[in-house]
Nucleic acid binder design. Structure first.
Lengths: 283, 283
DNA sequence: GTTCCGCATGAATCGATAG
DNA sequence: ACTATCGATTCATGCGGAA
């Protein structure tokens, strides 16, 4: 099956207006959190965050199919010793736009940022907010229950002793990265708590999430040939996974470095998958 | 040390007014969720939940010491296929009352209901909202530290004796700061994600949480002899744990069955702890 | 070719210092 | 007073060099 990876360089609020109505099956994105990525998005102030996001939310609503799903990865920020309320205010505002707040999953990050403070512990979780346009939406639950194939099993056997020891770490009672992701998926039915570590291997983009995260949602909410959109592409993790899973993908990124990085990475994936048939790539 | 367990039968909104100002160090409670416990609290409708809770929040604010903490365990409810917003609206409303929303911890319920999920994921987490009156509050973090993983232990054991001595001496001279930290450490601070199993053994009260939950907060925010309050006592888990940890406790419960159940259970605990000195109990 | 150890480094937060 | 910058703190992870 030929699937397309469409990369767009630009501000998503503007670029989204060029996409057709009801053309996207799944939106998975992680917008810049308040006060972060100041170099590209101007470091949105927490107090301005909702107003900044709402026009984008409006366009996302327009391009999403009636039975599609919107997954928003977002995190709160401590401001002046208190948890800022922009996330929960955003939920209320998006509902007024017409979005249905159907579910909230928790992403538990085992390797949260270290540090010690007199009045709080390390922040080790993020919101995964699910929004829909209608109460009936596409969902392929069987897809995330399928046990992993030989590829993953082969990888498990190749793990070094150190890795295996690390993965039995009791801190946080979570699981380590490699083993647990595959093992737990084999053994347990999923819940709305996802245990995944952030990946640190991508040195050019500081805020990547692990491939398992978009993979989970892409399998759950789309089928092969469907369209996946990430309006804040970053280094392109979502697009890369969509390609691997035979879904069409559109990624928008405002920063040229990340845009180029994503293009390069997806090309190499396509080389691997299709053994050199680069014509599958569009731009 | 003599600690008191004070049981009050009645509606907490009314009974709270009888408590003194600034007399409580920690409030840990799990109020009836919307639409649940309809027989006792009249089954508060989700839309009315915030208005119902606010007068109670006002009284809790009054009785809490300036450096005390209020932990609110609450869970969202799905209404008409959508996640209801009463929890986040309650956060905003409590802030207007003067509460600081200092933290939100996640209670990850490891053994949520097994089996297949119907139309959505199994719900495996609940909010643990932390509110304070001031940015400075009492917190004893060492009390809840977690043993570190095998990975670090394995490494430490392999250090030679000379290495240990050398690194220790470096501390005194100001060198080798990082190494010494690793050497002297076998425990790590927890994160804001709690991994606790739910208890299934108490059939007389429907909304029990495990003893480890109040225990964690009581250790973290109080010392022996401090005062703990649970305005929705239920079967008295919080009070029981407070007694065991040598904290004074006040529990309010509107339903006579639970009130009696809690009294009976705590009395047996006190029998065990003090070998029959029932005069420690007041009521 | 493996396994193991050392080291750098984060979607962070607080408190002190400086303008 | 109020904001801006900087140092100190902490631990899971990946990578590279060494056994």
């Amino acid at each position: 099956m030929e699937v397309i990876a469409n990369f767009i360089l630009g501000d998503c609020q503007e670029e989204l207006t060029k996409l057709a109505d009801h053309s996207i099956d799944l939106i998975v994105t992680s917008p810049p959190y308040a006060d972060s990525r100041a170099n590209s998005y101007g470091g949105i102030k927490p107090d301005d965050y909702v107003a900044w996001f709402l026009p984008i939310g409006q366009e996302l609503y327009r391009v999403l199919k009636p039975d599609g799903t919107f997954i928003l990865n977002i995190k709160e920020k401590t401001v002046n010793g208190e948890r800022h309320t922009y996330v929960i205010e955003l939920i209320l505002a998006l509902r007024k736009q017409g979005w249905l707040w159907t579910e909230e999953l928790i992403w538990h990050k085992k390797n949260s940022y270290p540090g010690k403070w007199p009045n709080r512990f390390r922040d080790a979780w993020e919101h995964l907010l699910q929004f829909n346009k209608n109460r009936k939406f596409k969902m392929y639950q069987e897809a995330v229950m399928i046990p992993m194939g030989n590829w993953a099993e082969g990888r498990l056997k190749k793990l070094s002793e150190t890795d295996k020891i690390r993965d039995t770490s009791k801190v946080g009672s979570g699981f380590g990265k490699n083993v647990s992701n595959w093992l737990s998926r084999d053994k347990a039915y999923p819940t709305n708590v996802l245990h995944l570590a952030t990946e640190c291997n991508n040195k050019k983009h500081s805020a990547v999430f692990p491939e398992s995260l978009p993979e989970w949602f892409i399998k759950l909410f789309t089928q092969e040939g469907d369209w996946v959109l990430d309006p804040f592409m970053g280094s392109g993790t979502t697009i890369k996974v969509a390609q691997r899973l035979q879904r069409n993908a559109i990624g928008i990124e405002i920063l040229p470095e990340y845009y180029e990085l994503a293009r390069t990475q997806i090309e190499s994936v396509q080389h691997f998958l299709f053994e050199g048939k680069e014509n599958y790539e569009s731009s």
